[in-house]
Design a protein around this nucleic acid. Structure first.
Lengths: 139, 139
DNA sequence: GCTTAAGTTTACGTTAACGTAAACGTTAAT
DNA sequence: ATTAACGTTTACGTTAACGTAAACTTAAGC
C-alpha cells in the first residue's frame, strides 16, 4: 500500500496538544508538507512523525531550525563522501550537546532532591532544627 | 570573612561566554543584584552562582522566569506548612519535567547512533549495499 | 593633558514562535 | 435555508531575550 492512513489538521492538533495555527505555521516554515484534498490538508503518517520529532526537540529547547536540521539527518540524501563525513561531525557535536544537557538535568535533579529533603525535614519537626545548607556550586 | 572575592562585569562575561549586555539584562530582570562601588557593579560569588544556574537552565530550554523560580527554591524563605507543601509539589512536577527531557534526549541519542551507523556503513562500502532504514517512531 | 579601556544609562531594533482576529468556503445535520 | 463544525488565507499583535548604537563617565597609563 502506497498511501496509509491520513489525518486532518485538528486530529493532529488534538493528538499533540497544539493548535492548528501551530501546525500551519510549521508548514509555512517548510517543516511539514501535507497533501491537499481540494482545499484541505491531509497529513500522512510521515508528517505525524515529523511533528512528533519537532515537539520532542522543542521540549529540550531546540529551535525549529535545529529540529529540522536534526530531522534531516535521518533521510539519506547525503550521498557523497564529503557530505557523509560532515554529517558524522554534525552527529558528534549534537551528541556532545545532548550529553551536556543530560549533565545539566542531573545536576538539577540533585538540587531538587536536596530541596525536597530540606522541606520534609522542616515539616517533620514542628520546631525545625536548622540543618546546614549545602550550596549548589558543582559543575 | 563577610565579603569574599568580587568580580567585574567583564570578568563574569568572559568566564561564562556571554556579553555584558546579557548580565545587565539579567539585573534589569532582577535575577542578580550586584553591589555598587561608585558607579560600577561588583559581583559576589553568590551572584556568580546564580548566573551559572541561570545558564544551566537556559541550556535545557528553560525561560529566565523558570530559572528564577527554580533558583528561588533553594533559599529557605518558605516557612509555613502550606508553602512547604506547595514547594514540594512544585519540586515534584519539575522533576517529572526533567525526566521527560531525559527521555527525549535518550531517544535522540539513539537516533544519532542509528544515523552514524548508517553513515559509517555507507562509507565502508564503496558501492554501498542499501540497508533497510528503520524509522524512528518509538515513544 | 591625551588616549585607551572599561564601565555606565537610555533607547530603539530584531528574531522566533506562535496568538488572535477578520472574512470567507464546504459539508452535514436540523 | 440556516446553523454548526471544521477548514482556509491574510495579516497584524505579542513576548522573550537579548543586539546594537549613542552619548557620557571614570581610572589607568604614557
Amino acid at each position: 500500500m502506497v498511501s496509509g492512513k491520513t489525518h486532518s489538521i485538528s486530529e493532529l492538533a488534538k493528538e499533540f496538544g497544539v493548535t492548528t495555527r501551530t501546525i500551519r505555521f510549521y508548514e509555512e516554515k517548510g517543516l511539514v508538507s501535507p497533501v491537499r484534498e481540494g482545499q484541505k490538508r491531509l497529513y500522512s503518517n510521515a508528517d505525524r512523525v515529523r511533528i512528533k520529532l519537532i515537539l520532542r526537540g522543542k521540549r529540550i529547547g531546540m529551535t525549529l531550525r535545529e529540529c529540522v536540521d536534526f530531522i534531516d539527518m535521518y533521510d539519506p540524501e547525503h550521498n557523497n563522501t564529503e557530505q557523509l563525513h560532515s554529517l558524522i561531525d554534525n552527529v558528534k557535536s549534537r551528541r556532545e550537546h545532548l550529553l551536556q544537557q543530560k549533565n545539566d538535568i542531573d545536576a538539577m535533579l540533585a538540587g531538587l532532591d536536596e530541596v525536597q529533603d530540606l522541606c520534609e525535614a522542616s515539616l517533620a519537626s514542628t520546631s525545625p532544627d536548622k540543618k546546614t545548607h549545602q550550596n549548589p556550586d558543582k559543575d
